[in-house]
Simulated scan of single mutants.
Amino acid sequence: MDKATARAAYKLKRTNLSIPEVERMDQQLFQQLQAFDWSGITYLHCYLSIAKFKEYDTMPFIEWIWENYPKIHIVISKSDFETHELKHYLMEKDAPLEHNPWGIPEPVNAPEIDVQQIDAVVAPLLVVDRAGNRIGYGKGFYDRFFAACRPDVQKLGISYFVPIDHIDGIQPWDIPISVVFTPGGTYELG
């Protein structure tokens, strides 16, 4: 399956999920995230979900990290839609967020974090293949982000769907992830 076909098919599959299906899968995903070893991480970048696209809601996970791993700093991003780059900010409890024109929650007046400080990234995605090639929305934000990170950064993803066998049309700038969390299990990729 090529990238465009996979993007369209899995975007439609996610759109067609019912609210009860999403709620059930969110609970299962949360269990997968809780079972992962987060020790050794100081700065954890985590996306904030776009509700209208039925992305997994990461806020319960972020709150769980704050409660269970108080030494981990949560980092979130602001999107620059002209450069297709992300800037990274420390997320503090009860800090204000505002939605940008595309519906993405973003920090307000938060301290900026150097990308080199980030130890692990939890990225949104539609689907991934067994080699770790991820399909997002096609703008390349996370590929640029991963390219700017330290080589040892943990590249993690969240999807409602299990990895597919192979995605065709992967480009040299497409950076694979190493782990994907799904409702049915956590998969090591590559």
Results as ranks from 00 to 15, higher is better:
178 S>W: 09
137 Y>V: 05
160 Y>P: 01
103 G>K: 06
91 M>F: 13
76 I>S: 00
184 G>P: 05
48 L>N: 02
53 F>G: 01
121 V>I: 14
85 E>S: 02
149 C>N: 13
23 E>G: 00
51 A>P: 00
94 D>Y: 07
77 S>P: 00
14 R>P: 03
133 N>S: 11
112 E>Y: 08
39 S>D: 05
164 I>E: 04
78 K>T: 00
25 M>E: 02
37 D>H: 10
81 F>E: 09
88 H>F: 10
97 L>N: 01
74 I>N: 08
172 P>R: 13
8 A>V: 04
112 E>L: 07
61 F>L: 11
60 P>G: 10
33 L>Y: 07
108 V>Q: 10
71 K>R: 11
155 K>S: 11
150 R>M: 15
31 Q>W: 05
26 D>N: 15
68 N>Q: 15
73 H>M: 02
86 L>G: 06
95 A>L: 11
128 V>I: 14
30 F>T: 08
52 K>A: 05
171 Q>T: 12
163 P>E: 11
158 I>N: 12
156 L>N: 13
119 D>W: 13
123 A>K: 09
37 D>M: 06
18 S>N: 01
82 E>V: 11
81 F>H: 15
11 K>R: 13
28 Q>C: 06
123 A>I: 10
51 A>C: 02
12 L>C: 07
23 E>N: 08
84 H>C: 12
7 R>P: 00
124 P>H: 13
104 I>A: 00
76 I>Q: 04
182 T>G: 11
63 E>L: 09
23 E>H: 12
126 L>N: 01
180 V>S: 08
61 F>D: 08
131 A>C: 14
13 K>Y: 03
89 Y>F: 02
73 H>A: 05
15 T>Y: 09
52 K>H: 08
173 W>K: 12
103 G>N: 07
170 I>D: 03
52 K>S: 04
53 F>V: 01
17 L>T: 02
114 D>W: 05
60 P>L: 09
143 D>W: 14
43 Y>E: 10
155 K>T: 14
70 P>A: 10
111 P>N: 02
67 E>T: 09
38 W>S: 08
67 E>P: 05
156 L>W: 15
185 G>H: 03
29 L>P: 03
93 K>M: 03
69 Y>I: 08
90 L>G: 01
143 D>L: 12
14 R>T: 08
62 I>R: 05
67 E>V: 02
142 Y>A: 13
187 Y>M: 10
35 A>M: 04
146 F>C: 13
55 E>N: 04
100 N>A: 00
128 V>T: 11
111 P>W: 06
180 V>M: 09
117 Q>I: 05
116 Q>M: 09
2 D>N: 03
2 D>G: 00
46 C>M: 10
15 T>G: 03
42 T>G: 14
146 F>V: 11
39 S>V: 05
1 M>F: 09
173 W>E: 12
170 I>P: 03
108 V>S: 10
49 S>K: 06
150 R>A: 15
64 W>P: 07
101 P>M: 08
170 I>Q: 12
72 I>C: 06
132 G>H: 14
83 T>Q: 15
